[in-house]
Design a protein around this nucleic acid. Structure first.
Lengths: 262, 262
DNA sequence: ATCGATGTTGCAATATGTGGCAGTGAACGT
DNA sequence: ACGTTCACTGCCACATATTGCAACATCGAT
């Protein structure tokens, strides 16, 4: 009885093509398995679709799926490849915490970018971020309103920072915030590289109804100097591998829930 | 909205056509089977309907049903390919107007993106923009400070807009601004699609010491409804092909210098 | 080097498109 | 009233397109 928004069990070929291209525009790449599942058609059908679109020059086929041609984005794209599996797993867990209608804050960083990637299928969200790639990614997802926090751009993070960004941030009422961090300290806290970063994240914890830190396991081995204020008020820490038992214990003692993604 | 969710025992042809077009407007595509079921008529009848509507140019027939003609503007990454040569030429001329130490405002759009691309070799500039791709591009150029104007992201432009963006913009002292536009009107003004866009550009003219419009020749053939306030105070209009003589004259009469890039 | 996932190809099954033909019913003229 | 015309529709048979399956080739990560 509902001929509406969610795609009909069997979508026409052009409709699939449209959706595939839309996803490519948003995510940069798509996998055959993912599309076959989404459209409920066989993998061969998807491959034939991709072949067609490829012949039209609208995408490039790669093993496992297809990717969009790009002028290539620099610098950060390299870092986001590191431990991509782990980050994707963290992204899935994080996306699972989000409900319709929420106001979501996404910190800058490669792990939060993975969270954003896992969110592209969700609908009816308000996104608030200072990260250029995250804003660019999510603004094309249907049903999302994206607010970019302005400010001076930090080239390393590809994100706005500074006083303007802090001010813009504090205007929002945020339901759920996902923050990155520099390292997971031995005494069970998330720490940061810079004073400004730590301060900004501490404020976000105070602002958001719930805050989760997302840290991939490459951060376990590091040590950074700045404690993040209000850390004990965070709702959880999402990681992609079990940290040492004593660290896990220390986190739990402070308050935040430790969530291990796989 | 829908007085007809119960199946019309047998709808007349015009009634079906109306409903088919309505569905196309909402869903983008319709299938023969779905329509045949809904109207309780044979598939052939639906096909004949579609054939008729197709002959009238109101839809396109595809295997299994019908699809609406490209309702959506091509993605920005595609638009920037159109007339890339012309845009690059405009970019070179624009970049030539920039001196060390300047505060440069770059509007959103594909032509201003070309200007940004031509600027990557310059140094010691402060960039101010609401465009995500421009900010992402220039933040990696050495010796540039990039300020991103925050606000709600318009997916079509991949840029911030709205009240927050206007407010952030007005904080800056700008030496030179490069603005896009919707069209070059026959009476020698740049015009815009939307009230908000025209208003925002008008304000930037008032704010910047010098303002240049950048318009590639594909904009010559178009007509858009909104005049841009303060247009006569702009310093110049940079294009990639000579417009009609009377238009060129009209521009000069208003004040801005016409610069033809090659 | 091995194993699981992915890509390829031919083929059969199903779905869809096309054209012809006949039945229906309304409009119209006789 | 009757018959004719005509638009519209459904049914049928056949042509074509799309899809899934299965067997086999390749790729890629351990």
């Amino acid at each position: 009885m509902s001929p509406d928004s969610s795609l009909p069990a069997r979508a026409l070929a052009p409709r699939r093509h449209e959706e595939i291209l839309r996803r490519l525009g948003v995510q940069g790449s798509v996998s055959v398995a993912e599309l076959a599942g989404f459209f409920d058609v066989s993998r061969e059908t998807i491959r034939r679709d991709l072949k067609l679109l490829s012949d039209k020059g609208q995408l490039g086929i790669v093993h496992g799926g297809a990717a969009r041609f790009e002028p290539s984005e620099p610098a950060m794209s390299l870092r986001s490849q590191e431990n991509a599996r782990g980050k994707a797993a963290i992204g899935r867990v994080a996306a699972g915490l989000i409900r319709n209608g929420m106001v979501v804050f996404l910190d800058s960083g490669t792990t939060t970018l993975a969270v954003a990637q896992a969110m592209t299928d969700l609908r009816d969200l308000t996104i608030c971020t200072a990260s250029l790639p995250i804003a660019l990614l999510l603004c094309h997802a249907p049903g999302m309103r994206v607010h970019m926090l302005g400010g001076e751009i930090d080239p390393g993070e590809e994100a706005a920072s500074g006083i303007d960004m802090l001010e813009a941030m504090s205007r929002f009422r945020v339901d759920i915030a996902f923050l990155g961090g520099g390292a997971l300290s031995p005494d069970g806290e998330v720490t940061d590289f810079t004073r400004a970063g730590a301060e900004q994240r501490g404020r976000m914890i105070a602002l958001a109804a719930k805050t989760y830190f997302v840290l991939d396991s490459s951060k376990f081995a590091k040590l950074t100097p700045l404690r993040i204020p209000n850390f004990e008020r965070a709702a959880g820490v999402i990681v992609d591998a079990k940290p040492q038992a004593d660290i896990a214990e220390a986190i739990a003692r402070k308050g935040p829930e430790l969530m291990v993604a796989s």
